[in-house]
């Protein structure tokens, strides 16, 4: 989401004094269009607890995924689209179900509890988000690694064994968290990108982020996390959703499936 040229210094901005530029940037931020801030250093995408493999014929409890699909306006703001999001949710669940069934696993959609259980579940969803963000920032991103995460092969994160007490978790082997955000470039955004290229301004088109994490339902340990800022696969179509799910689950160590037809990416990860 690189919006207007206010974030870019250049001779073209001689019209304003340098002092105005940070003000302009601040005001642009206040308008809600954030410039893309990509870490310069390389960032890892996947982490696995050493020695972890998904147990054979595992029961995987899927908590309600956070899926947002919409358009990216010319100026770079997110335009949520309810139809696309509904399609994406249905397609993703179907693709996930098909893929895991192929591996002999069972994906169970978590029920939505009410009352105290609902609060607890919300707590854990929030906790997972914090945990996953911390992993991304302090382990995947090498520039800001915590001292305890610096040794190679260490992947030691947990949200605590009390996750067992959540409704539905007792009968499951793993809890799966998924969130995706897709912003498809609008016509205006695409034109702006082309015009921008002529004007010497870089205008990125589209945002396709996804995150998937697997938590051991008995120990609360985060056994696998995958996070990708440039995902492929269009969730609005069944085929695209299959590709997206394969990418989301990339690097998840699984046992050899009962049938030979394993998606190439998963086989490669083994």
């Amino acid at each position: 989401m690189r919006p207007a040229a206010v974030t870019q210094s250049g001779e073209e901005e001689r019209g304003v004094t340098p002092a105005v530029r940070p003000v302009l940037l601040a005001m642009t931020l206040a308008l809600g269009c954030l410039p893309a801030v990509e870490p310069v250093a390389a960032k890892e995408k996947t982490g696995v607890m050493p020695g972890f493999t998904v147990a054979p014929s595992a029961k995987i409890l899927l908590l309600r995924p956070r899926i947002r699909v919409g358009e990216q306006s010319t100026g770079g703001i997110f335009e949520p689209n309810a139809d696309w999001t509904d399609q994406a949710k249905a397609n993703m669940l179907a693709a996930l179900d098909a893929q895991q069934a192929q591996l002999g696993n069972q994906v169970i959609m978590a029920e939505e509890p009410i009352g105290e259980d609902g609060l607890k579940l919300a707590d854990y969803r929030a906790l997972f988000t914090v945990l996953a963000d911390a992993v991304e920032r302090h382990q995947f991103f090498k520039g800001d690694r915590l001292p305890t995460k610096k040794r190679n092969g260490v992947f030691d994160w947990s949200i605590g064994p009390e996750i067992r007490d959540l409704p539905g978790v007792a009968g499951a082997d793993y809890v799966l968290f998924i969130s995706t955000r897709d912003e498809y470039g609008s016509t205006g955004r695409n034109i702006a990108s082309i015009v921008g290229a002529f004007a010497g301004r870089s205008v990125t088109v589209g945002v396709h982020e996804g995150q998937a994490g697997l938590v051991d339902a008995r120990t609360g340990n985060l056994v696998w996390l995958n996070s990708d800022n440039s995902m492929g696969g269009d969730l609005r179509t069944p085929e695209g959703a299959q590709r997206r799910v394969a990418q989301l689950l990339e690097g998840l160590p699984v046992h050899a499936p009962p049938v030979a037809a394993t998606p190439a990416s998963v086989a490669a990860a083994q």
């Binding site: 919006p3 207007a4 040229a5 206010v6 870019q8 073209e12 901005e13 001689r14 019209g15 304003v16 105005v20 530029r21 302009l24 005001m27 642009t28 308008l31 809600g32 269009c33 306006s73 010319t74 100026g75 770079g76 703001i77 205006g188 702006a192 015009v195 921008g196 004007a199 301004r201 205008v203």
Partner: peptide, 21 residues
């Protein structure tokens, strides 16, 4: 507004910033 900001940014030249303001 942000659409207009974008166009002002990539085509506005030296007065782009004033227009953006």
């Amino acid at each position: 507004s942000t659409d207009a900001l974008m166009w002002a940014g990539i085509t506005g030249g030296r007065n782009g910033a004033n227009l953006q303001l």
